[in-house]
Design a protein around this nucleic acid. Structure first.
Length: 225
DNA sequence: AAGTATTAATTGTTTACGTCA
DNA sequence: ATTGACGTAAACAATTAATAC
């Protein structure tokens, strides 16, 4: 990326590839290469992201169909090339990614040579590949969390039911205290008809209160002979 | 033909590191 | 020796756009 890419950026600036952005009303910053218009490379140039020097042969990857190598014209009439990697290229990149998800400078160039790609393309592929991996992992994590949440809900429900059973059996064992102003604690919970979950009746913020009450009640039951 | 998914490529931001005053 | 400003490079996130289906 270092030096050669800087050169590339300059070359690009002089070339055509910044122009489509403007045409597409991109929200991103407008290019400072307005002067480049007159200096644009011919639209058949093979290069989009850099390495103009190598470009003409870079896309002639062995076994790659020409339709895979070149894009069609964009709306603005300018070209944005999109390489389609062939099976061999993808396979080798995948194989390397299995071992190392990041690239060293040496490996990047080695791969680029092997695959007849530009180092920048190898680099981009690894970046995108890492992004895909991360996305997949996020989905997996999300599903795991959902399942965990479900199991917690289930466990919570079960415990509440158990507590209610304990309470009702406790009622039968002992008569309520005389002259109590407080309503019975059991009234602060209700059972959801659909899922049979018990929930607090005092609206928002009741969950934490309810949990506290549950703990208190359990302690009460434990300490009370 | 239109819609969607995939993915190469671009752009801007963040982070880490080295250099220098 | 320490610190802050600055530059550079790599990685990342978000996005665009080409392509296949």
């Amino acid at each position: 990326m270092a030096e050669d890419d800087q050169k590339l950026d300059l070359r690009l600036g002089l070339g055509h590839c910044n122009l489509p952005k403007e045409d597409n009303n991109s929200p991103k910053k407008t290019s400072g290469f307005g002067v480049s218009l007159d200096l644009s490379f011919p639209s058949h140039s093979n290069d989009q992201s850099g390495d103009i020097i190598e470009s003409s042969k870079t896309y002639e990857v062995e076994g790659m169909e020409s339709q895979n190598s070149y894009s069609t014209k964009s709306h603005s009439g300018l070209m944005r090339k999109k390489l389609r990697l062939n099976k061999e290229q993808s396979a080798l990149l995948e194989e390397c990614f299995k071992h190392h998800t990041t690239l060293t400078m040496g490996r990047k160039h080695e791969l680029a040579t092997k695959l007849n790609l530009r180092p920048r393309q190898v680099e981009v592929w690894f970046q995108n590949r890492r992004a895909r991996t991360k996305l997949k992992q996020t989905e997996v994590d999300c599903n795991l969390l959902k399942k965990y949440c479900e199991s917690l809900s289930y466990e919570n429900c079960r415990l509440k039911r158990e507590l209610q059973e304990l309470r009702s059996s406790f009622k039968f064992d002992r008569p309520p205290p005389p002259f109590s102003d407080q309503p019975p604690k059991a009234k602060t919970t209700a059972t959801c008809p659909s899922c049979e979950k018990t929930a607090g009746l005092s609206g928002a913020g009741s969950d934490q209160k309810d949990e506290t009450e549950l703990v208190d009640t359990v302690l009460e039951l434990k300490t009370d002979p």
